[in-house]
């Protein structure tokens, strides 16, 4: 009995002691630039592509623009709105949601907080009953990418440099956003090699399909087995399984969103890079400069919003003739002579 009260006393003393052990208050935010809040999707950070790109853009803005950037990674679905709202209610200058899943919450909050700027990476434009596109609120900037254009170019690379009439594609969640990658890729393959065949696999129909490396490896192994030499993945961290399969079987993979060479050095032919980092940085810069406007901002080849990696690492994997051909294609797309489809 007495021992219990002694235990309570000791614990209480330890707790109070530890409370006083650290004299500093909350770490003060430094910087004089705009205050920015970035909310990732559940389990998004650490995907080494899309979400981490937004993180890079935010930290770069903190470093070079003096922006005070807060990052929130929600623990569950209902926290997405809570995270955005927390930042909006605190009077942030810009609140940014990373991923199409934030679309509804961003739209609602932008109407509710007309003085706060909002931006949504991959914001999905909704259509009304009559089929007309509903524009986002005037304080909301929809950062959209023409992924199909970059995918077209890596499709051409896969067909020209892969050495097989069969090329592979691994998608994450089976949704229109990912179909854009597939459609552009297929068009790129077919443009340079009309009798080629594209093998397509999707990891699932839920957001889980973007973080399932086991499934990614399974699909990739079966495609390599079927004679594919190169696989382009658009599947978040599911793609880590595709790289694993490429390394194991000595084949090639094409990364997505960011330069993914480091995931399987020597086996990453190139990566279809999506400029999430510059787009996020640009949104913060526009808030700082006072010329932030709502509406859709579309980033494609012409804006350097999408592209492919060609550097000292993978130069050996892409012959000069292929490189020249792909650069020619890039110019033709920018000039509008090639129309890249964005739907299957």
């Amino acid at each position: 009995m007495k021992r219990l009260f002694i235990l309570v006393g000791v614990l209480l003393a330890a707790h109070l002691g530890l409370l006083l052990a650290h004299r500093g208050g909350a770490a003060a935010e430094t910087g004089t630039g705009p205050s920015v809040g970035v909310v990732f999707d559940v389990g998004g950070r650490g995907d080494k592509s899309f979400n981490d790109g937004a993180y890079l853009g935010g930290t770069r803005a903190a470093r070079t623009l003096g922006a005070r950037v807060r990052f929130i990674e929600p623990g569950e679905g209902s926290d997405r709105e809570a995270g955005l709202r927390l930042l909006a209610a605190e009077g942030s200058d810009l609140v940014l949601g990373v991923g199409f899943i934030f679309t509804d919450d961003l739209t609602g909050l932008a109407r509710e907080y007309p003085k706060v700027h909002f931006a949504g990476v991959d914001y999905a434009l909704q259509t009304d009953a009559a089929g007309n596109v509903v524009p986002p609120p005037s304080n909301l900037s929809a950062l959209k990418f023409r992924e199909e254009e970059g995918s077209f170019l890596v499709g051409a690379i896969a067909a020209l440099a892969g050495g097989s009439k069969k090329v592979g594609f691994v998608g994450g969640m089976d949704i229109p956003l990912i179909h854009k990658f597939e459609a552009g890729y297929r068009a790129g393959v077919m443009h340079v090699c009309p009798d080629c065949e594209v093998l397509v696999g999707y990891a699932g129909v839920t957001p889980e399909a973007f973080r399932n490396p086991g499934k990614g490896k399974e699909i990739a192994l079966s495609q390599y087995q079927a004679g594919v030499h190169v696989i382009f993945h658009a599947s978040g961290s599911t793609g880590l399984g595709v790289f694993e399969a490429a390394r194991q079987t000595g084949h090639y993979a094409i990364g997505v969103d960011a330069d993914q060479w480091a995931e399987a050095p020597g086996h990453v032919m190139t990566s279809m890079v999506k400029g999430v980092d510059p787009a996020v940085f640009d949104a913060i810069k526009r808030v700082k400069d006072g010329d932030f406007t709502g509406g859709v901002r579309s980033f494609g080849l012409a804006e350097d919003g999408v592209g492919y990696v060609y550097d000292e690492h993978n130069r050996a994997l892409i012959p000069d003739a292929v490189r020249a051909r792909v650069e020619q294609l890039r110019r033709e797309i920018i000039a509008g002579r090639i129309k890249v489809p964005s739907t299957r």
Partner: peptide, 15 residues
């Protein structure tokens, strides 16, 4: 407390 201190933050501020 110990966890928060390990991150270099003040437990009182976090609570």
């Amino acid at each position: 407390d110990l966890l928060i201190l390990a991150f270099g933050q003040s437990p009182a501020a976090v609570y």
